[in-house]
Nucleic acid binder design. Structure first.
Lengths: 210, 210
DNA sequence: GTCTATAGACTGATAGAC
DNA sequence: GTCTATCAGTCTATAGAC
């Protein structure tokens, strides 16, 4: 019984509508998306969207939640692994993160846009307390690194910002970058692939600048 | 006669509506903005928005054009100055750019969002041939630098991307960053002020990595 | 579960008074 | 130039047939 309902949920109308909604919402944003667009993309009648999800807004909330959660699970295990060094953790994190972004290149701009239009609603709705990292092993390693005197002389927040910037921004500006440089999709992906190895090197250098 | 009409244009209803439109469009995007919001923000009746600008879309086009042009003029003179070195040009460009972003922190996300929703329309509408840099002096300096053998061993596009990322991304992610770090507006601006001097150093380091 | 038909609310735009 | 009143079109959501 339970098994059957799970199977049904994962691969039929409801799921198809959700996938269609994810695609259209992510590309056009909430306001510019019409329920008709979603229904058409899913190949069903627009009445079904309300049958399954009550309203456009409730469907949007679900998509937001799932989109944002894509950012999280790949990270938690790595942060708490006592077997890897700080530098190794950075290498793994950067590589995983860029992988995820290459699979979902439109995600960052979608999330940042919707947060910008209504900052607290989305953040509080979704982030609640999904992330708890106080006891992560990486914190201990970081504190040891800073205490050793080998850390950066600048505010470390700068380097954290730089790491996020170098990973995420190319995807946020993807269409513009490709248009300006005349780069194709493949060339762009090749470049991002290279960055998996380069970004940890740059971060490492910044951490030791004094 | 001519003088009078210019004065009228620059500081009355038409200009007030434009300022209101800039504010609301920039914050909510095109689709989520109602002409009523703009009229209310401007303190006038919504009929006037059509009286002066014919339609919501034509008004939006004007705002887009003006917003994107904010990115350009501050840059052109610097690129062509034979009196400054490459490193000095980078320092000035970064400083000016961050200044401009601190005055218009919402601009990058607005432009990137609207480009994403409809890539070619906006880019072609506005960019046409506003930017011509083939003969800029900086190109010559760059080619000399690369020919000297002191240039980076990685594809220089990476470093160009990094420079843009480190400057622009903090503003694109501003609301999220402030929320996650508990930073206030003043602390954020102080950080950005610091980055005016730091980013050229980081870029310089990247250019010499081999 | 899925479709058709339509209600009910909102939005951009205009006509016409002042 | 500015405002009021209103229309025509579009959108979300629902009622009801199948």
């Amino acid at each position: 019984m339970k098994k059957k309902s799970v199977i049904e949920k994962n691969s039929s109308t409801e799921e198809k509508i959700k996938e269609a909604a994810r695609k259209v919402f992510t590309q056009k944003g909430y306001a510019a998306t019409r329920t008709r667009d979603i229904a058409e993309e899913a190949g069903y009648n627009l009445a079904l969207i309300n049958y399954y999800f009550r309203s456009k807004e409730k469907l949007f909330d679900i998509i937001c939640l799932e989109n944002i959660q894509l950012f999280i699970p790949s990270v938690l295990g790595i942060l708490n692994d006592p077997a890897t060094t700080l530098q190794e953790k950075i290498e793994i994190l950067v590589s995983n993160y860029i992988d995820m972004l290459m699979k979902n290149p439109e995600l960052p701009l979608f999330i940042l846009s919707e947060i910008h239009k209504d900052p607290m609603t989305l953040i509080n709705k979704v982030w609640s307390n999904n992330i708890r990292h106080e006891n992560a092993y990486i914190i201990k390693q970081w504190q040891e690194f800073m205490a050793s005197g080998k850390g950066p002389s600048v505010n470390p927040v700068h380097i954290f910002i730089n790491a996020l910037s170098m990973m995420i921004f190319p995807f946020v500006a993807g269409p513009l970058l490709r248009n300006r440089t005349g780069m194709g999709k493949e060339a762009f992906n090749k470049l991002m692939e290279e960055r998996k190895k380069l970004i940890p090197v740059w971060i490492g250098t910044m951490l030791n600048i004094r």
